[in-house]
Amino acid sequence: MDIIKINNVGFGYSYIDEDSNKTMKTETLKNINLNIETGEFVAILGHNGSGKSTLAKIMNALLLPDSGEALIIGLNPSNESNIFEIRRNVGMVFQNPDNQIIATIVEEDVAFGPENLSIPPDKIRPRVDSALKNVGMENFALANPAYLSGGQKQRVAIAGVLAMKPKCIIFDESTAMLDPNGRKEVLDTAIKLNKEDKITIILITHFMDEATLADRVIVVNDGQAVMGGPPKSIFSQINELKALSLDVPQITELAYLLSEKGLNINTDILTIEEMVGALCNYN
């Protein structure tokens, strides 16, 4: 079953054109089509301005499509009564760890979502405790978020989403501002939520190594989904990716360079182990 269906969705932001003084609209999403299956781990790649963050905001009804249809957990966000059900089920973790924490105490921040959902007070407490435990932040329940590391702040933000018991979590460049350790904390948490709690994960990122961990990669360019498939098949298309100003993982780049030189080596190698294996079995 598809948890998210995006059919021919178009979206633009309004702006005032300086020359004609008329209100114009950007063409940020151009009849984009894509589906996300329940339980999938999908990475979305694309350079800045490609429309991927706009897409993410369509997916949890922060923005509504101008044209086309979005169906999220089977609900249409154009119907206003569906919006809160959609946001509750499709949570979002944003880029800047500082700009998404509301309270001065970790556990009160995690409680923010359930409080908005009118959950009775005695039912909120267990949700908060289990969400913090799930991201490994239970020892920081009473800490002030301002003094946590970037990775810890993002894990608090994830707990805040988890406390709403979502079916899907979108990470909108949530690792972009973190150091390697913080990035690993967030990624490990995302993978664990996908594998153990069967939560659908949509990971928007600029780091190709992170995208190799996904079941499926979707490349967005100029408001459209231009490539899609398992990481191996995407990253082996090195020239296409470079044309879209995207990187490839270093090991895949090496495989590509070797095959360019005429060696008979698959260009869909992603990891060191695969590369070692391929070279050992060469001939």
Partner: peptide, 20 residues
């Protein structure tokens, strides 16, 4: 100390261990 070398250095090390 919690740092990583570039990916390629790990590959070269792994190859060396395999006898390359």
């Amino acid at each position: 100390i919690g740092l990583a070398a570039p990916k390629i250095s790990y590959l070269m090390k792994a190859l060396k261990e395999k006898g390359f």
